[in-house]
Structures are given as structure tokens and as C-alpha cells.
């Protein structure tokens, strides 16, 4: 059976690509520290020597629209074009082409449906920065085949937080039941407190540093019990109007498992939102 060699949860900051590649006067003062943290974080994936990446993210009204909105969707395609005109325009993100791992997509869809998750699928999916940001930070060669999984954290009504956790747990079990010798890393990105298009946006920190502190603690210690006790669809409005993206972190806590302490934890307090990086090694830390 396949082995899950790393579980990684991260924020996806679309400004990283431009900040890290800028030079001279265009290079922001925080870029060097940010690059250094990302380089260390990247090493946690490289050391696990993955063959395949399962990538959990959320479409930002690119391909998925309100006339036909899935809650959870699995890509099943041989290739995925990536990044959209408005991401190139606003963030300077490059166009990309990623390979797909269709066997694993098919396995996740079949087993997920059988486990009671009515997963939508797409055979032609153009993915956005929720998936490409972690490719850029963690695997800039973009050489490994992927299975993208999209969640709806964006267009209410949303699934309950516990459903994200349940799906994460199921994804872990399903990947581990894939009849393959391949080494799989499961990577998901979300947000800590975040405000977009509201009065608290683009402040010197994330809109709710206290929420961020608690959230990092929950994730780092695998404290799903406390996290689920405190986080509801209603409560997530208060740290910032885009904080429902935290539910993708909760999904990744489900993948890592209740009580699973992260093997690697780092964060970076930036303007606008806090960055946070976590890695678990379910089969033990690689040599």
C-alpha cells in the first residue's frame, strides 16, 4: 500500500512569489526572513522524498462559481493548468502546468464516495494559488504529479468545521489504502485570521493575533478537541471575514490525526495576515 510520508499544513500567501523574487528597491524588507523560513520549511518536504502530492486548497471564484458550487471536489485529470489572469495581474504569479496522478484521484473518489462523502469531481480543472503557492514554496520544481482537492470555504452555505476534520481523516485512510508502492505527501493550505474587503484588512498584523496564537497552538499540538469546541461557522466571522479558510487547517489536523504533535512548526508575523507552517511525519522523521 502507499505510504503517507509527510503531512503539511501551511498558509498560502500569494505575495510570496513576488516578494521572494524582487530585487533592489522593489524587494520588501521582510523578504529575506520570509525566504529563509520558506527554505527551511521546504526542506521538511524534500527530506520525506515524496512521489505524489495530494494538494488541498480552495478555488477563489476562478473555475468554481455560484451557479454550480461543489462543497468538496477532487480533480481527476492527467494535467492541471494553473494560475489565472487576475492572479498574474495582482500577485505576479506565473502560469504553470502540473501533472496529475489519475489513479490516486480515482481511488480517492471511489473510496470517498463509499465512505459517505459525496465528492464532486472535475476532469478539466485549472487550479489557482491555493494550490500553486505551496508548490512554489515547497516544491518549486513543480515536478511531482498531484491530486488537487478543493473545499468550499468561500461561498456560504459552507460545510461544518467537523466535516472538514472528518474528510481529512478519511483522506489519510484512503491514501493509505491505495494499492501502490508510491510515497505520498498530503499538503493543505488555509488561513489564520484574515480579512479581505472589510474594515480590518491590510493591518500591521493579522486582524486577530489572539486567534492566531490559539490556532497555531491547536494545530501544533493536534488539539482537535479544543479546536472543534471553540470553532463554529459563526465564530469564524469574528477573527476576520475570510477566516473560514482556517477550516482547511482543520482538515489537515484531521489528516495528521487527533493528538498528533507536529514535527515542525514555524510562523511569521507579516502585515495583513500571519504565516504558519507545520509538518508531520506519520511514519517517523526521515533520516
Amino acid at each position: 500500500m502507499a505510504s503517507v510520508v509527510a503531512v503539511i499544513a501551511s498558509t498560502h500567501h500569494p505575495f510570496y512569489y513576488r516578494a521572494s523574487t524582487a530585487t533592489g528597491e522593489d524587494r520588501p524588507p521582510f523578504a529575506d526572513e520570509w525566504v529563509s523560513k520558506i527554505t527551511a520549511f521546504r526542506e521538511t518536504l524534500t527530506r520525506a522524498r515524496p512521489d505524489v502530492l495530494v494538494m488541498v486548497g480552495s478555488d477563489h471564484f476562478h473555475q468554481l462559481w455560484l451557479d454550480n458550487m461543489p462543497q468538496f471536489l477532487v480533480g481527476k485529470a492527467p494535467f492541471y493548468d494553473a494560475n489565472w489572469y487576475n492572479e498574474e495581474r495582482e500577485f505576479g504569479l506565473p502560469k504553470m502546468l502540473l501533472k496529475g496522478q489519475e489513479d490516486l484521484s480515482a481511488h480517492i473518489l471511489r473510496a470517498g464516495l463509499d465512505e459517505g462523502f459525496d465528492l464532486a469531481f472535475s476532469n478539466e480543472l485549472r487550479i489557482d494559488h491555493s494550490v500553486t503557492c505551496p508548490i512554489i514554496t515547497l516544491r518549486p520544481e513543480a515536478d511531482l504529479p498531484i491530486v488537487p482537492i478543493y473545499t468550499n470555504i468561500f461561498a456560504p452555505p459552507l460545510p461544518q468545521p467537523k466535516r472538514f476534520v472528518q474528510l481529512g481523516k478519511a483522506i489519510r485512510e484512503i491514501v493509505e489504502s491505495w494499492p501502490s508502492h508510491l510515497r505520498v505527501a498530503i499538503i493543505g493550505t488555509g488561513h489564520l485570521s484574515l480579512e479581505l474587503g472589510g474594515p480590518r484588512q491590510f493591518g500591521p498584523h493579522g486582524p486577530d493575533p489572539e486567534f492566531d496564537r490559539k490556532a497555531v497552538e491547536w494545530i501544533a499540538t493536534g488539539d482537535l478537541e479544543r479546536c472543534l469546541a471553540e470553532v463554529t461557522l459563526d465564530s469564524l466571522h469574528s477573527p476576520g471575514n475570510a477566516t473560514h479558510g482556517f477550516m482547511d487547517f482543520m482538515l489537515m489536523m484531521g489528516v495528521a490525526g487527533a493528538g498528533a504533535k507536529a514535527d515542525y512548526v514555524d510562523s511569521l508575523d507579516l502585515f495583513h495576515t500571519m504565516e504558519a507552517y507545520f509538518t508531520w511525519y506519520p511514519s517517523g522523521a526521515p533520516a
Partner: peptide
């Protein structure tokens, strides 16, 4: 971006409902 946020400063929680 900052001026955009400042013009919304009179809104408090809960913000207007965005459900469609």
C-alpha cells in the same frame, strides 16, 4: 487597500450577510 478598509470603518460585527 488601506483607504478601502478605512472607508468601511463604520461597519461592526456582524457584517452584512454575503450568502447568495
Amino acid at each position: 487597500q488601506k483607504a478601502y478598509g478605512a472607508r468601511l470603518a463604520h461597519f461592526s460585527m456582524p457584517y452584512p450577510d454575503i450568502a447568495t
